[in-house]
């Protein structure tokens, strides 16, 4: 019994196309997950066996073919922390200026363009800049300070762009509300804009942490060492680092057991994931408290 709601031939064809398109897009999404799953799976399968408390907290031995990774692990923590200390305050300050104070004119647009371009500079170029600027010109030598500053400059655009975007996501009406009660721009920023933008700013910092801890090229010439028999005592010392250590044990040293590089890679990824999930958890907590 055909009613006015019965399916027509055109409906049937449209439905078929719609089904096909949906399946195709879903497959693309799956495709995206496969490499991640394979990487994690392989690392855990091949490197999981070597992970132990000893592996994390002892020095490499036997020409780096045995022993642990403690100096590299600690070195990466040093590098990331110093880089964050440098880039977060500068990045946030610059983003606040660009978003809240800068007039919309050609010089502001030029600065914005420069920031986008800075994000596109290859990391090896940053490395060479770091050697020229920090190691030689400022005379910091090959040190944690030089390496971290190089990393900081490399990740600065990420912090600036994400901070600026989260500042601009705060409704302009909040600022107007403050100004109308006679608040200065800074009072409005400090009391209303920043508290409401903090989750977004945090996202930028998370991204920076992930990127900083994995970078190899920028630290290779500026402060990271092949092997050091001691831990760094301060920011003017050289240090080992996870990313460079992975490169070294994978390609530069003969006779390394297969599981060692996999173990190093697994720890490096675990560090990043742990940092990320901590920050994401914190972000969700803050977002839950916010409402408008």
């Amino acid at each position: 019994m055909a009613t006015m709601f019965a399916e027509s031939a055109l409906n049937a064809r449209n439905k078929k196309v719609q089904g096909l398109v949906k399946t195709l897009f879903m497959l693309m999404t799956l495709l995206l997950i496969i490499p991640v799953a394979i990487i994690l799976g392989t690392l855990v399968y091949k490197g999981g066996g070597i992970i132990s408390i000893d592996f994390l907290f002892t020095y490499p031995t036997d020409g780096m073919t045995a022993g642990g990774i403690f100096p590299a692990l600690l070195g990466t923590v040093w590098l990331v922390s110093v880089a964050l200390l440098a880039s977060v305050p500068i990045g946030i300050a610059a983003a606040i200026y660009l978003s809240e104070y800068a007039p919309d004119n050609w010089s502001t647009r030029a600065i914005n363009l420069a920031i986008i371009n800075l994000a596109g500079v290859p990391s090896i170029v940053h490395a060479l800049f770091g050697v020229g600027a920090f190691v030689i010109f400022f005379g910091f030598g090959t040190s944690i300070l030089s390496a971290s500053l190089t990393l900081a400059i490399m990740t600065l655009p990420v912090v600036i762009v994400s901070t600026r975007e989260s500042l601009q996501a705060v409704p302009p009406a909040f600022r107007e509300a403050c100004w109308n009660m006679g608040a200065t721009r800074w009072q409005a920023i400090r009391k209303v804009v920043l508290p409401n933008a903090v989750t977004g700013i945090l996202t930028g910092v998370i991204l920076e942490v992930s990127r900083t801890s994995g970078e190899t090229a920028p630290i290779m010439f500026t402060g990271a060492a092949f092997f050091l028999p001691f831990l760094p005592q301060g920011i003017f010392d050289q240090t080992m680092a996870m990313s460079l250590h992975l490169f070294v044990v994978s390609t530069q040293v003969p006779g390394v057991p297969e599981e060692l590089p996999y173990g190093v890679a697994l720890v490096l990824i675990a560090m990043v994931l742990l940092m990320n999930s901590l920050s994401i958890g914190f972000r969700m907590y803050l977002r839950g408290k916010k409402k408008w």
Binding site: A173, F174, A177, N180, M181, N196, K290, K291
Partner: peptide
Amino acid sequence: VRKQVGMVFQRPNPLPVSIRDNILFG
């Protein structure tokens, strides 16, 4: 000037804080 001349907007724009803090903000 802003203290003397206050403004109310088309869309209510309370700050995302407590009622108390909104009133005492200024």
